[in-house]
Design a protein around this nucleic acid. Sequence first.
DNA 1: CTTGCATGCAAGCCTAGACTTGCCTATGTT
DNA 2: AACATAGGCAAGTCTAGGCTTGCATGCAAG
Lengths: 94, 94
Amino acid sequence: MVDDVFDALGAPARRAILDVLCLRDDQTLFEIVTRLVGDHDIDLTRQAVSQHLQVLESAGLVRSRRESRYKFHTIDTAPLHAAMRRWLTEEERS
Amino acid sequence: MVDDVFDALGAPARRAILDVLCLRDDQTLFEIVTRLVGDHDIDLTRQAVSQHLQVLESAGLVRSRRESRYKFHTIDTAPLHAAMRRWLTEEERS
DNA sequence: CTTGCATGCAAGCCTAGACTTGCCTATGTT
DNA sequence: AACATAGGCAAGTCTAGGCTTGCATGCAAG
């Protein structure tokens, strides 16, 4: 579970997707692609971003909600907190 | 810089190395290899572990100290703290 | 000074996974 | 009905990097 989080964060493209989702919740696949190209100079196809979102979702870092033909994606930082405690000392875990 | 940290954490073997270094500081390459094989069922050659240590060191997650023919490795969690703040909200950064 | 131990360097192999291409489904619009 | 939009699926390509192999270096002990 924690390993999935670090594997997901291993790809720069997925970190950029989290950056995009961090600024605004409930974004569709097309919105994310548009912002990646426009704001991050990352030129990926829609399918590539879709696959990255699947990885992020199965790692628990992204939650999605289907609404008619749209699918809205939202970041979930909870798994991040759990993952980071792995190498912290006792007092650092606060 | 922060990207280097996440790239370094992307490989399971490197996370296991950090696990080993987390339990005890100032371990040599051979000690780390021995503990990986014994405690983590990770069977890597000395050279593989050495290369992983270089990646971890250039990411700032491991500091090393040379003493005659031994090289001692120590974990440094400071870059972790900086990296984790990337997707946290304002109040979460505490 | 030879032998053994701890590590470094360089080159090649080889697989995981990042990315694309092409086609398909579903929903909304006209 | 046709058409456009939002997304999914599956198969193939191709490169980064994880890992190995072989040799070199540096230090210590006998």
